[in-house]
Structures are given as structure tokens and as C-alpha cells.
Amino acid sequence: MSDTHLVLHDPNGLIEAELPLDRAPHEALVTAVLAWNDPDLAPRDYEQIALQLTGHAHAVAADVRRLAAALPKSDGRGALAEIVLREADGRLSTPLKGTAHCVQNRARLVQALYGRLDRLAEPAPAAT
């Protein structure tokens, strides 16, 4: 057996789009983190939790982008998604810190992204 590997080239993220988010454990983590009241963890532990939430925030944001891009221009949910995504991009570009405050900010971001994802997944409201 040779030591070869296959490199996937998926610039449009189509493979990732087919994979469902592992939502339940991340929502449980968000709930736990937001319930913290003066936790006493090592900075390294905060950084690991923040990294986990950051990676998941990127994945949820990608799903929000895909759903928003598929909406007609007249659907206001797309504009609201763009606002949430701009905010997410800004928050995700800030460096991680080994603090509870940083982890809780990432948890709130994941929560907001899931809220927007759920609204985008709903059927379009009927025009009146």
C-alpha cells in the first residue's frame, strides 16, 4: 500500500453544503457557556472552547450565506441575513482571548447565526 492521499478541490463548498451541522452538541455548549457565572478555567481551556465555537460559527455562517443567496432579491430575509453575516465576519476576525468574556461572545454569535438560519429555513411569508 502506498502513502498517497487525495486532495479535494471544492472552491464552492458544495461538499460541505451536503453535510448537516452537528447542531445539538453545539447548542448545548452555547447554553452552558451563556449560563456561566464567574467560571474559573485556565486560559488554555477558554481558548479551546472559543476555537470550537469559532469553527462552528464559520460553518453556520456558510449555511446562512447559502440560504440567503438562494432567496429572491425581494425577500427581506436576505437583507437581514447580510447584516447578521457582516456582524459575524467582524466578530470572527477578532483574535481569540483566553477569557470567559471572549467565549461568551462567540457563544452569542453562534446563537445569533442559528436564529438567522432558522428564519431563512422557514417558508417565505405570504405577500399581503
Rank of each mutant, 00 (worst) to 15 (best):
Q104Y: 03
E47I: 13
L53T: 09
S93K: 07
C102P: 01
L109A: 01
L85D: 08
L53Q: 12
H58N: 13
L120G: 11
A32F: 03
R119G: 11
T31D: 14
L85I: 08
R65I: 02
Y46V: 03
R106T: 03
D63T: 03
R65H: 10
G90D: 14
T99A: 05
R44L: 11
L117H: 11
P72R: 11
Q52L: 14
L113K: 05
A126F: 06
R65G: 07
R116K: 08
V33D: 06
A69H: 12
A100Y: 08
N105I: 00
L41C: 03
H101T: 14
A79W: 02
V84W: 00
H58Y: 11
A69W: 10
G115E: 11
L71H: 10
E27M: 14
S74D: 15
I49Q: 12
P125C: 01
V60L: 07
A42C: 02
W36L: 05
E87C: 00
L96W: 00
V60T: 09
Q48I: 10
E27L: 15
L92R: 05
R65V: 06
G90C: 02
P125G: 11
V30W: 04
K73W: 05
N105H: 07
A50V: 08
V33K: 04
R77S: 09
A81D: 10
R119H: 10
T54D: 15
P25N: 09
E47D: 13
A28P: 04
Q104W: 02
